[in-house]
Amino acid sequence: MAQTDSNASADEVPEGGVVTEDPADHSVWPLWEVFVRSSRGLSHVHAGSLHAPDAAMALRNARDLYTRRNEGTSIWVIPAAQVVASDPDSKGGYFESAKGKAYRHATYYTQSEGVPHL
């Protein structure tokens, strides 16, 4: 397809890809994260994101954008700026304590093999 030179310039790369917004600046519609519950009994799952001027519009736009084919029975919208995320630079160190702890899993215990219902 058409090849033009790049649209992005190097100095626009945000730290870690997170766009920070000034909540008091309403001229730029903030980003909202959308979570959809596909049916009763299931939890809300992240579906994507969108821009909207306020919560009510975000909810309406989310309905039009993410549930055009009965994908949902309930929607949450959350300002993207409010999401608190773990630091990607910790390079797995943050999750290390779960590693090497096979004893947290049932498969660690092998003596009971062949014993029914255990």
């Binding site: 397809m1 058409a2 090849q3 033009t4 649209n7 992005a8 626009e12 790369v13 945000p14 890809g17 766009v19 730029v28 980003l31 994507g48 994101s49 969108l50 821009h51």
Partner: peptide, 26 residues
Amino acid sequence: SAAETLGTSRDEMYQQLYTGKAKYSS
């Protein structure tokens, strides 16, 4: 939304299309 996660704002992309700087499928 996907493009925006790479650090280019939505408004900037709209602007690139508006000014004719950006291409689209022929």
